[in-house]
Simulated scan of single mutants.
Amino acid sequence: MSKQSANWKLWIAGARPRTLPASVAPVIVGAAAAWQYLAMLGVCTEQYPEPAACTANRAAQAVLLGRFWPVAVLCLIVALALQIAVNYANDYSDGIRGTDNGRDIPEPDDNPYDEPFDEPHPRKPQRLVASGVPARQVLRAAGVAAGIACVAGLAAVIVAHAWLLLAVGALSLLAGWTYTGGRHPYGYAGFGELGVFLFFGLAAVLGTQYALTGTIDLTGILSSICCGLNAMMLLMVNNLRDIDEDQRHGKRTLAVRLGEGNARTALAACVGAELLVSIVIVSALWPGWGVLLMISGIAVPLRMMRGVARHEFRGALMDAGYQTLFFAALIVLCVAVGGL
């Protein structure tokens, strides 16, 4: 394998592709909730002459649907670019602190599939700074990704006339940097799960719905809670995997603070809460078939829990990522089919 090829693979790994579902899913869910709201906005009882409120609603619906897809795509670009920026920023911050040192990374030629080795000798994903990439380059990459997110976000705000989202975007950038950066990173104090719940759940879903409709509703709120819980599960599995290294380097994640056993219990509580809220949403959107489809997916979080208990974190992380996408696909299907 050439040095240049290995370097590109390292940069791709540094973007942490397996975390990207946590950024894509909330935008998809927010767009689905927005579409549901807009569909209902145009519903009006047949009267003659048509009430003024119905006429105004139809006009608003036509305007919002006309810019729906451009704004949705821009929101998706913002989410992906911001996630990559956060991943590179975390790599930079953890790297200069030495948190990523000694992750027992296999050499690329030792693994023909370029995948982390499975247990009983787990290997951790490669990190850029810890692998010898200059920290300044990683920070520059984070800045470029953040710049793309800012440009796309500003474009979405202008097109949607959703100026309130400028504040949400600024807070998201600040939260992404201070997760592991700055003097007092909240990711090192056990508040990472709260951060992802707020920004990968509430802010991402409701921000997308607001950009597309100018408002939020109960479907969006409940869906944002589920997305936040799914993001928490992904981070909790990741932190359980890294619990020993984090403890040695003074990174007091929630898993470190609670201990492995209690952290697994907290993960199970998140799984249960997400399933309960999902039932409420799906029952309202597509009773019967939607609930049946949701129940059919319960095996995934259960398998994730079993993988964590067995320290099979590679599979558990894949299941956690799949769960976020499964929920997003389920909501889209319920919105698309449930109203027919």
Rank of each mutant, 00 (worst) to 15 (best):
M233L: 09
A320N: 03
C44M: 08
L292S: 10
V63P: 03
T55D: 09
V277L: 08
V256R: 00
I148K: 00
K3R: 13
E50A: 15
G187L: 06
Q137N: 14
K9P: 01
S296L: 11
V256M: 07
R314P: 13
L171R: 08
E274V: 09
R136W: 11
R97G: 15
V196E: 01
W11L: 15
V291C: 14
G250Y: 06
Q126E: 15
L340I: 12
C54K: 10
A13G: 09
I148R: 01
Q323N: 07
I221D: 10
W289H: 08
V332M: 03
H249V: 13
A162Y: 09
P116T: 13
L240I: 13
L166S: 05
D242T: 11
V43Y: 01
L174R: 05
V308T: 06
M294V: 06
A146C: 11
P120W: 12
E119D: 15
L333Q: 04
I105A: 02
I216A: 05
T208F: 01
L235Q: 08
A13Y: 03
V43W: 04
E312W: 09
L82K: 02
G290R: 00
Y92F: 14
T324L: 03
G143P: 13
A320D: 00
M236L: 14
L333G: 00
F326T: 01
T19M: 03
K251Y: 02
V138S: 03
E274W: 05
C270M: 10
D110C: 07
A22Q: 00
F313Q: 10
A263M: 02
F313S: 15
